[in-house]
């Protein structure tokens, strides 16, 4: 490392590690939300660094909607097999029994029941008082004003008008019984920082981020991948093989692909530099209603 100067990635890494250590030192039962995407991959990598040589002092939690890409489940199971990793998978069983899915219930209901409610169930069931999330402030406007330590009243509600002032690197992790905190160690990272860090640190990510021929259908202007036999096709709708990749990963029926030739992280970055649409545009859930993220967050979504 060059003497007496840190790069922007050095500073971001050191900040994220500091945040994670504060949580572990001050809180009783932390958990790390693991959503299998690139941000989760970076967050997990930073967590290992923060507590090295000790194992992770908290489990990972995957709130499974059962509609993730198959390649994501493979990645998740691979991570779960690694030494020192304890992974909890939670599915909202009531939602599953009720047959909630993105096709017949729409993205809003599906996301609320399987993701938001599922998350709250899992936190309550295990008594977790702090949950790490991989959200970044550059992703979406309501994130831009959220604290790194984001306090939730009993019932997991976020009150954007009543946030604790957050000064310097002093985080206030004090809370009463029943209250919880969501902590975002990647708050100050941008999408480009994430990719650069993945490249520099050689962090494994789900292959769906890289371009490959995949069967897709075009719906409402979005390219949806037909990942398994559960996807109902409209009359006359036939999947076509197109060379695509994903900029973000979620439930496959709700995640739009982009046409791309990028098969390496460097090429992805190159593509990003030419890109002229913002990252979340690939997500169907954000477009359901205006300012939808803020509303979902108030209800307890990550």
């Amino acid at each position: 490392m060059p003497h007496s100067s840190l790069t922007h990635l050095d500073r971001l890494e050191a900040e994220s590690i500091h945040i994670m250590r504060e949580v572990v030192a001050e809180c009783d039962r932390p958990v790390m939300l693991y959503s299998i995407g690139k941000d989760s991959a970076v967050m997990l990598h930073l967590a290992r660094k923060a507590f090295h040589p000790a194992a992770l002092p908290f489990p990972l939690l995957h709130v499974d909607t059962t509609w993730k890409f198959r390649a994501m489940y493979e990645m998740r199971d691979q991570v779960a097999r690694q030494a020192g990793i304890k992974l909890i998978v939670h599915v909202n069983e009531e939602g599953l029994k009720a047959g909630v899915n993105p096709f017949s219930h729409g993205s809003a209901v599906h996301t609320d029941v399987m993701k938001t409610q599922g998350l709250k169930q899992a936190l309550d069931r295990h008594g977790f008082d702090v949950a790490f999330g991989g959200a970044r402030r550059d992703e979406e406007a309501s994130r831009a004003k959220e604290r790194i330590f984001s306090f939730r009243a009993a019932g997991h509600r976020w009150d954007p008008k009543n946030q604790r002032p957050e000064l310097w690197n002093l985080y206030n992790a004090r809370k009463a019984k029943g209250e919880t905190i969501r902590v975002f160690p990647l708050s100050n990272w941008t999408e480009l920082d994430i990719w650069q860090y993945i490249l520099t640190e050689n962090i494994p990510i789900v292959p769906l981020y890289f371009a490959a021929p995949r069967p897709v259908v075009e719906r409402d202007g979005a390219l949806i991948m037909v990942d398994d036999g559960r996807m109902p096709l409209a009359p006359g709708e036939t999947p076509t093989l197109r060379t695509v990749r994903f900029r973000t990963l979620g439930c496959y029926p709700l995640t739009g692909a982009v046409e791309s030739e990028a098969t390496s992280v460097a090429q992805i970055v190159g593509e990003m530099l030419r890109t002229t649409t913002s990252e979340r545009q690939g997500r169907v859930i954000d477009r359901d209603q205006s300012a939808s993220m803020e509303k979902k967050k108030q209800e307890g979504y990550f």
Binding site: H8, Q267, V269
Partner: peptide
């Protein structure tokens, strides 16, 4: 992402760009 990044970037340009990025400060 600066104005200097042209739309016609090849892999070598990207490598060079990423190398410069690595030394950016904050």
């Amino acid at each position: 992402m600066s104005a200097a990044v042209s739309t016609a970037m090849n892999d070598a340009d990207i490598e060079a760009y990423l190398e410069r990025q690595r030394h950016k400060s904050l």
